[in-house]
Design a protein around this nucleic acid. Sequence first.
DNA 1: CTTTGCACCTGTTGGC
DNA 2: TGCCAACAGGTGCAAA
Length: 272
Amino acid sequence: MPELPEVETILRSLEPHLSGQKIKSAVIHNPRLRWPIPANLPAILAGRTIRALRRRSKYLLIECGNGTLIFHLGMSGSLRYLHGDAPAEKHDHFDLLLANGMMVRLHDPRRFGAVLWQPGNAALHPLLEKLGPEPFAEEFNADYLYRVTRKRSTAIKQAIMDSHVVAGIGNIYANEALFHAGIRPQQPAQRLSLFRCTRLVLAIRKTLTEAIAQGGSSLRDFVDSSGNPGHFQQYHWVYARADQPCRACGAIIKQLRQGQRSSFFCPSCQNR
DNA sequence: CTTTGCACCTGTTGGC
DNA sequence: TGCCAACAGGTGCAAA
């Protein structure tokens, strides 16, 4: 589930529950994630107060005084807000227990997620410090995108999925944004005009904004505890719609492979 | 520096 | 039904 809009949605629904809460303890059920959960994390976290929740790319940051708990949900991770006595089940990895008796639980079958700790400034964590600008940051604009793509022979889709170019654009929203911008995914990045860079920046923001607005309603109980991951029927224009008619023009959506990821586009709406 | 392919995992789906 | 291959929303890293 977790692309940027989902992480943002999870953040927004957790924030009112967590902000200002005191951490009672933390429990590692299974440390095996992309990197092992640090064994000393419970000792580090106990007694701290949660000051704020933030997002950087697809990382969810829980700021606790002089350090930050960093979550990444990988391909299959989820965070749920539950009563602290809920028994752990298969693929539950980590619990953050609050002094008020509730907890946040990380569940991740595929184990591509992560739980990390960064003392001091979270932005200095090795995984965060080399990230490109956030899609909604002023710094991410047409001039910037034009400049950084000039020497890139790679396809534009792969360029915008490169977290050093812009943070947090995953496969679904890369496909959808390129559709909205009218640009083919296989177009070499360096051939985009400044005008097309403008369109693409706007399309990325529009796509993410709409997904956040949708995810907000469909993911609420996902975080809220019922444990129901809930299918959130995302209304995609091209993603996963190979051989189906384009919702805009009726042409048949095409699929191709780029860097081991599936790409989808409308050959008529996305003419270059 | 950029680009490419691999690696890490489990679960689901579709073809035979 | 069962079996097996292919594929899935991510992304750091080594190697070219």
